[in-house]
Every structure is written in C-alpha cells, then in structure tokens.
C-alpha cells in the first residue's frame, strides 16, 4: 500500500512540478485572497490582525479546493481515471498518495500564506508547537477530506462546481478548530488551544480512515 502511495504521490507532484500550476496559479491566488481581505478590512487594521487566523484558514481552504480539483482533473483528462483503475495499484495506496501530494502542496502554500499574514496583517508569531501541530493536522484533514470528495465527484461533468458545494460545509469543523487553535497560538496562550487541536486531529483521523476504506468503491462507482 505504501509503495503504491509513494508512486502515486510522486506522479502527482511531478505533474505539478512540470505544469507549474501550483506555483503559477494556486499560490498567487491564495495571496490574492489575503490581499483582497486586507483591502476589505483595511480601515480597521486592529480587526485585520485579530481576524488573521480565520482569514489564513479561509485562504488555505480556497486554495485547497483548487489543488484538489487539479488533482482529479489530471485523472479525468485523456482517460486517466480508467488508467488509474487499470493500474493495478491498491486503492488505499492511491488515496494516500493523492492526499499526500495535496498535503505537500498545501503545506508549502501555508508557509507562503503564513508569511503573507505576518506581513500584510501584522499578525504576531507565537505558540510555535501549537501552530505547527494545528497546521500539520489541518493539512492532513483538508487533504484527506478533499481527496474523498474529489474522487466522489471526479467522474462527473459538474465536478468543478459540485466539489466546493459538497466540501465546504464538511470542512466547517476543521476550519473552526484550526482557526481557534491558531488564535490561541498567536495570542500567546497555547494551553487553551489544544482542545481545538483535538477536534482538528479527530477530523483528520476520521477522514483519513474513511478514505483508506472507501476510496476504492468510490473510484469504482463514481
């Protein structure tokens, strides 16, 4: 399973590296979201700083939608979905590989967005352990849930519009937990944030487990 996962993740990351969609489109889009929020909330810079954790995660979620759509668009083109099913790879391995590739892209994006939040929103940096744990778990949760819903709609003509419609409500607990934990981390009171990290961790665990079990049938039936 993990050999197949590494193969799929390597393939997806190679596609992104060669196409440069993530670096030339997704990352600039994410930064633009931050900048637009900065313009919209500019009259009250204090509020902008206070809202920075929420805006950061909203930008990450919007960017994740693009990364997930992209992950399944490359499979939909030229019969790639059939090729994936014929590949003989373990479906659980395919899930882990695709989610892993999305997670790697999101992690890099979060670094860029984090710098953007510090620069544009004047957000303080603090609670490094809580912040890092939140980012890791939220990234895993986003990638896992996104990959589950990505394969669910991947075979449909309306996948690009349907994915956000289905995924955004599902991600609400993750965005809530990650935002609250990030707020506590930046406020310098990380002890209060760990409860929210547990919520994010539980979300990530549930969708990772569900994806490992359900990805095969979803790939077959959707």
């Amino acid at each position: 399973m993990f050999r197949d996962a590494a193969l799929v993740a390597g393939k997806d990351l190679r596609v992104e590296f060669r196409s440069r969609v993530a670096t030339n489109q997704v990352a600039p889009y994410a930064l633009l979201v931050l900048i637009v929020f900065a313009f919209a909330l500019d009259p009250d810079r204090g509020f902008l700083t206070k809202a920075a954790p929420g805006l950061f995660w909203v930008a990450v979620v919007f960017s994740a939608l693009l990364a997930i759509q992209r992950s399944f668009t490359i499979e939909a083109a030229d019969g790639g979905r059939d090729a994936l099913r014929l590949s003989g790879l373990d479906p659980s391995g395919i899930f882990i590989g695709k989610a892993g590739a999305v997670a790697v892209q999101l992690a890099l994006l979060e670094v860029v967005l984090g710098l953007g939040v510090v620069v544009l929103y004047n957000a303080p940096l603090g609670g490094a352990v809580l912040l890092a744990t939140t980012c890791v778990l939220a990234t895993v949760g986003l990638a896992a849930a996104g990959t589950v819903f990505g394969v669910l709609v991947g075979g449909l003509r309306v996948r690009d519009t349907l994915l956000p419609l289905l995924l955004l409500p599902v991600l609400a607990p993750l965005v809530l937990g990650a935002t609250r934990a990030t707020e506590y981390a930046l406020a310098g009171t990380p002890a209060d944030g760990w409860l929210w990290v547990q919520l994010v961790g539980a979300f990530a665990a549930v969708y990772t487990a569900f994806g490992i079990v359900a990805f095969g049938p979803l790939l077959e039936e959707s």
């Binding site: 393939k11 190679r14 596609v15 060669r18 196409s19 490359i74 083109a77 030229d78 019969g79 790639g80 059939d82 090729a83 099913r85 014929l86 590949s87 003989g88």
Partner: peptide, 21 residues
C-alpha cells in the same frame, strides 16, 4: 486489471508528464 492492457479511444496518458515519466 493487473493482467490486461486496454488501448481505448483515449490515450490514458498524463499530458504534463514526459513520455518517459
């Protein structure tokens, strides 16, 4: 599936990858 090869109407290739990839 592990033992068959299908050459269909589509190429089942990844456009952004090289032939070797």
């Amino acid at each position: 599936r592990r033992r068959v090869g299908l050459l269909g109407h589509t190429g089942s290739l990844y456009d952004d990858l090289t032939v070797a990839d």
